[in-house]
Design a protein around this nucleic acid. Structure first.
Lengths: 353, 353
DNA sequence: CCATGTGGTGAGAGCGCTCCCACCACAGCA
DNA sequence: TGCTGTGGTGGGAGCGCTCTCACCACATGG
């Protein structure tokens, strides 16, 4: 056996995939010309271009991404960073929307999406090392908490980064896409007041997330504008279970409440369960407003009044923003803020009334 | 300006990331020894190892993945292939569970998850080219339809592949993880029969997906075992909207039905909406069984009787299976089938009864 | 005393690609 | 007949890594 013949390029048991060299030989041109023909075709004669195109098809040639990115210093992939350690958060359609949207933004580019979830047991330093290691061309960071301080760290590494949600630390010029959470909270308050509710309370989100803080502040503002008392505030973790727990605290401290704003639809679900568990009715005894416009809850039975969040659109925007930053790192991009809208359904307004 | 001084390794505006050469110099060893120290440390003296370890920390060194994979022919990433073109499918918690599970399986390995969704407008040939191009070490394919014929194509390329769900074409020895869908359908039928329902119908899943076919066959078998008529079968697309539409067809053709099995929880939701829209009650007039044990529907109000599908566990298993195939391509792995279980809730059994 | 390991080491090649540069025609202009 | 473009081309270097191989000490055995 000639031990040299089978050396290069054996990927699996099958035949080795053709290299640029093979392609050039087949097309009867040089490696350089073949490379030019593949990448845009500037300064390539029509004949050479045609020959290379034909050879690509004939050989089933695919460029080796590793070799390419070794020299171009571009990997052709971006990371979606989800610093939620817990599996349950994936159940939140929020993430589904983000993934869908980012993926949509990548359409047409030949970029790929690498999912980077902080996994239980790993520290976030590992994630950060990966991001800094040049494995991806950029990152979209979502659902970050105050303690994660991604803004500070990523903002200074020079890795193109876009946030979904307002980052805690500003002034780094890191672009972000967000909903007008303040206005969303305010709308919820005004709506409950308009519906004649006077004894208000809220199940807010985690205090270490800007979205939760902004919603809470908007809520407070809206309550004040309506000339009402702010009422009790309990923090939940955006999940149904967390909402249930928070609602128990809320009502045990203030059983007289007749209007509750939950900072997520899932928490609103928990609130409704507690209200009904106490033998009272929604919306007659207690009106409940959620946040997110969760598709499943919109369709099902008595709808939930909620604040719309166009997450897919927001994620698409974030993806496009990131591509711009990657292509032009110097350009300063402004944050994009989507308006919040209220969707009124049965949880605040009785049927037929 | 010395045009040579700044040439190598400038990734961004910042300082260039250190190379193995830099690391070796800092540690006072050769590039080879540094490489060995990083990769397992066989045949490396304790002193050299310590010096390299210290230099890694001091320099903040991260191996360049592109360079490494160029020579090792390993990319350190696997693809999760979701051949669903439509954004809405991501809303299905099924995918959330798959992503969570696969990610969980990757914990401890330093593999990354690349999400490969067939995007609207792209043909699946593009996806296939990517998979064949050596960009990933393996693939997990989920939610495939008959027309996708992934099994045939991937099975022959030599790319390590694991399916979630039984593939249409068998005999390629491609391992897969699946639920006992047949038994699940059968359990649903037996349960409805046991609950005294005699006029049964079903909203099945898409006829081009094995999971749907298997559930339907199990259902048929269960109905026959109970000595009942199979009743009408309408196919839906696993979504709520599809379930609604299918349910309308079902009841307009057979208004007498008192027990319906929907092949997904979301479709069951649609069925329930239609039943109630017609002024009838669940479960008194029509009992409804779903499939998936969707977390949101489990918690909320009148629960949905459904067949459990431990998707996260299944996805973890698929991930681990794939890693085994990657590490040992010769080994033949058997399919892993998870048992189906019925969870009885209020949609088939009246409260307190 | 020389053969034969054995733990540890470093030089060198080469993975497949892009990019720089030298080069070749052939034009257009002096 | 030069001399400078200008479209097209191919050779060569080199991206940062792994891996083979030669080599060096030093031990062990005849």
């Amino acid at each position: 056996m000639n031990e040299k013949s089978r050396r290069p390029g054996l990927l699996q048991a099958g035949r080795p995939s053709p290299t640029l060299e093979d392609l050039a030989t087949a097309a009867g041109v040089s490696r350089s010309t073949a490379s030019r023909a593949i990448n845009g075709g500037l300064k390539v004669s029509p004949e050479a271009q045609a020959a290379v195109d034909a050879a690509i098809v004939a050989l089933g040639y695919t460029p080796n991404r590793a070799a390419r990115s070794l020299v171009t210093r571009r990997t052709g992939s971006i990371a979606l960073v989800i610093p939620e350690p817990d599996a349950r958060v994936m159940m939140d359609p929020f993430f589904a929307a983000v993934i869908t949207g980012v993926n949509e933004a990548l359409r047409g580019t030949d970029m790929q999406l690498v999912l980077l979830m902080s996994r239980a047991g790993d520290d976030s330093a590992r994630t950060l090392r990966y991001l800094r290691g040049g494995h991806v061309d950029g990152a979209i960071v979502v659902s970050f908490h105050k303690a994660d301080d991604w803004a500070e760290t990523l903002g200074t590494t020079g890795l193109p980064t876009v946030f979904i949600g307002r980052p805690w630390a500003m002034g780094f010029g890191v672009p972000y896409v967000d909903l007008d959470n303040f206005e969303g909270g305010r709308l919820a308050a005004r709506h409950l007041a308009d519906a004649g509710r006077t004894r208000l309370g809220t199940v807010a989100g985690p205090a270490d997330m800007t979205a939760a803080v902004d919603r809470l502040e908007g809520w407070m503002q809206g309550v004040r504008e309506a000339g009402l008392q702010p009422g009790p505030v309990i923090h939940g973790d955006f999940t149904t279970a967390g909402g249930t727990e928070a609602a128990r605290d809320l009502f045990s401290g203030s059983p007289e409440l007749d209007g509750v704003f939950a900072a997520s639809d899932l928490m609103a679900l928990g609130v409704i369960d507690v209200v009904r568990g106490g033998g009272r009715k929604v919306p007659e005894d207690v009106a409940v407003v959620g946040f997110d416009n969760h598709s499943l809850l919109a369709a099902n039975g008595m709808g939930l009044t909620t604040v719309t969040q166009p997450m897919v659109d927001m994620a698409v925007t974030a993806g496009k923003l990131l591509i711009r930053v990657i292509e032009n790192p110097e350009e300063q991009l402004d944050p994009v803020i989507y308006p919040a809208e209220l969707v009124v359904r049965g949880s605040t307004v009785a049927h037929g009334g």
